[in-house]
Design a protein around this nucleic acid. Structure first.
Length: 486
DNA sequence: TATCGCCGCGCC
DNA sequence: AAACGGCGCGGCGATA
């Protein structure tokens, strides 16, 4: 069946479709790189100085936990902090932090401490610290410091250096602007990843913070140019929808066909709840949502346990429920596969392909070689098999965004520009597209882009939905805003 | 001083 | 032994 741009679905693992999909988004991608994303340097400067104040406080507090008699073991390092005040240790050094926590303060005594992958040092990662924060008040300080340091270093200090001034009357990118704005010009890479996703660098605009309070504040530093608004459109639950398509999981398809919430469905099925009002967000929906996402990646019970304790409960500042054990996670995952048994068949099919052919492919025929399956190390084989089941999902999702980008470029951006309206795509974020649009046209363009996204699997000739989709509708959400926020 | 591997972590 | 897929980036510490 012919789809937009001559893409045929499902594609065989030859390269015709793939070549098209590597090429189709190029006009839009060039536009994005050339035009850049406006940043509010004053906003980032203000956030940065606040973060800097909090960091200095946290640094001092952390150092104050060094016992007096141990001070000389640290002080010889002559660590100098940003304010030219001497501190006994460098809190940014994981080596020194591990020494303080585990050797000097004895945090985690008697526990088997996780070690890092490469060098085998005792880990000071967030996952580890979350487990230990009840033992000593310094641990939470370290977590708070880390969050602030990451944001300040990356976005308040480094990123503005990448922003270039675009003065009135023209600039190096060849475009004229009506007023002075600072813009960052990301580089988008279309052939970098093994799954088909575009990658972004210098700066990476695909991992701008948003979740935490401070993270959201950072993202607000990305703004629409004067006289314009930001339009953001994203596919709703696209990877789960694709999982439903490729596995034909009945319960999953049913949920999407009735416009239901898949996390809610999983929760109700797994816990045997019939009344939606009885689904508790923390106790039922959170673990259900976690498994819904993680099963695509091949997550283990141990992984689920860590995810839930560290992120869902730990990072959210919620108490970890006592029923949350490794056994509980094992049973929950088992229950998940009872609800969606077709998914197990899908996973096994990808494993078979990886072992039989040494490669897997997604619905457009993009291939990923999985040489790991020939390894003599079970760990390596297992990692390869996880990649094998994940790639067709992540890959196909990325193809849909690229297809949508191409159509937005020709059917929306060009058309709207021809009508004399400012319309500039800024960045793709895996399942989302951000554009800058004349402020009077935000809602209109948003609607058009949502339409393109939702019709991405529709044959442009006949209007028929792709039969390989198993009746799963593609849905998209749109937003109009003055600053980039969730 | 420049470079590299490691660690940790932001996003989807 | 490891246990979650795909990325890029900043700081540290070792090395050249």
């Amino acid at each position: 069946m012919a789809l937009y741009g001559g893409i045929e679905l499902p594609g065989k693992p030859d390269l015709d479709n793939v070549r098209r999909l590597d090429v189709l988004p190029i006009p839009m991608v060039m536009d994005m790189m050339r035009y850049g994303f406006a940043v509010d340097r004053e906003h980032l400067r203000r956030v940065g100085s606040e973060l800097g104040r909090e960091m200095a406080e946290l640094r001092a507090e952390i150092c104050s936990y060094i016992p007096v008699e141990k001070l000389d073991e640290f002080i010889h390092r002559s660590n100098l902090d940003a304010d030219d005040t001497y501190l006994p240790m460098n809190v940014d050094s994981n080596v020194q932090l591990a020494e303080l926590l585990y050797r000097v303060l004895g945090v985690g005594n008697g526990k088997v401490l996780k070690r890092t992958k490469g060098g085998g040092q005792v880990s000071t990662g967030r996952r580890q610290l979350e487990q230990l924060k009840a033992e000593h008040p310094v641990v939470q300080k370290c977590l708070d410091y880390r969050e602030r340091a990451k944001l300040k270093n990356t976005y308040c200090d480094a990123l503005p250096e990448l922003a270039r001034l675009h003065p009135r009357g023209g600039c190096w990118c060849g475009l004229t602007h009506e007023c002075e704005t600072w813009r960052v010009h990301t580089q988008l890479l279309l052939t970098r990843t093994t799954t088909g996703r575009p990658a972004s660098k210098n700066p990476n605009l695909q991992n701008i913070s948003v979740r935490s309070k401070w993270g959201a504040e950072i993202r607000r530093g990305f703004v629409a140019s004067p006289g314009t608004v930001l339009v953001s459109v994203d596919f709703a639950q696209i990877e789960l929808r694709i999982l439903a398509m490729v596995s034909s999981a009945v319960k999953l398809i049913e949920t999407f066909q009735t416009d239901g919430d898949p996390h809610m469905t999983t929760a109700m099925e797994a816990f045997g709840i019939t009344d939606p009002d009885k689904v508790d967000k923390i106790m039922h929906r959170a673990p259900a949502k976690n498994v819904n996402f993680a099963v695509v990646y091949g997550e283990s019970a141990k992984g689920l346990l860590e995810q839930l304790t560290s992120d869902t409960y730990g990072k959210a500042g919620l108490p970890v429920p006592d029923w949350l054990t490794l056994e509980w996670c094992e049973q929950f995952i088992a229950k998940w596969f009872e609800i969606y048994p077709e998914v197990r068949e899908y996973i096994e099919k990808q494993h078979y392909r990886a072992r039989r052919y040494g490669l897997v492919w997604d619905q457009v025929g993009r291939i990923r070689r999985i040489p790991e399956v020939r390894s003599v190390h079970n760990r390596v084989v297992a990692a390869g098999l996880r990649q094998a089941s994940n790639m067709p999902i992540q890959g196909f999702a990325s193809e849909l965004l690229k297809l949508a980008m191409a159509e937005v470029h020709t059917e929306v951006v060009r058309v709207v520009r021809d009508a004399g309206v400012w319309c500039q795509p800024l960045v793709p974020v895996h399942d989302e597209l951000v554009l800058e649009v004349d402020e009077g046209w935000g809602e209109t363009v948003m609607g058009l882009v949502v339409g393109v996204f939702e019709g991405v699997l529709r044959d442009k000739g006949t209007g028929e939905e792709w039969e390989g989709g198993g009746g799963v509708p593609v849905k998209a959400d749109g937003k109009v805003m003055g600053r980039w926020e969730k």
